[in-house]
């Protein structure tokens, strides 16, 4: 699907059954503008997703990209290997295509970051 800049994209958010979020087990469909973050769009629709710093740093919002395309123009700590492994940070992620992602992946992401020597991985897991 091709759209012009400034338009919106369909974003499907899958909340795992095992999540502690209120929306556990649900799938939520949102329309998200290309200048809007996934986290802000979800919260404005009443879907509470985790996300502390909202600057692409703390990684509490971490999610897995199933399909689609997201840009992270303002993330303070987002690495090439994150992108290659399909991890995304919805707090700063803006859609560039229709997209599906699985949210609430913080624990797995910490392990991934630790395995790749990236913060905050081992600084959190070695405590």
């Amino acid at each position: 699907m091709t759209q012009t800049p400034g338009e919106t994209w369909s974003v499907r958010i899958v909340v795992p059954d095992t999540s502690s979020l209120d929306a556990a087990g649900e799938t939520v469909d949102l329309e998200v503008g290309e200048d809007e973050t996934i986290l802000a769009a979800a919260r404005s629709e009443g879907v509470w997703l985790p996300g502390d710093c909202q600057q692409g740093w703390c990684t509490t919002c971490a999610a897995r990209l199933v399909d689609g395309d997201l840009a992270h123009p303002n993330a303070r700590r987002y690495y090439d290997e994150d992108r290659e492994a399909g991890f995304v940070l919805p707090c700063t992620a803006k859609p560039r295509a229709d997209t599906t992602l699985i949210v609430d992946q913080y624990d797995d992401f910490l392990e991934f970051r630790a395995d790749h020597g990236r913060p905050p991985g081992s600084s959190k897991l070695d405590t």
């Binding site: 502390d52 710093c53 600057q55 740093w57 303070r76 913060p119 905050p120 081992s122 600084s123 959190k124």
Partner: peptide
Amino acid sequence: EGSLPNDIRDFADRASCP
């Protein structure tokens, strides 16, 4: 029952803000 990290680099790495 926690403590501050012994290594200040760990403390900075896990800080919740940039």
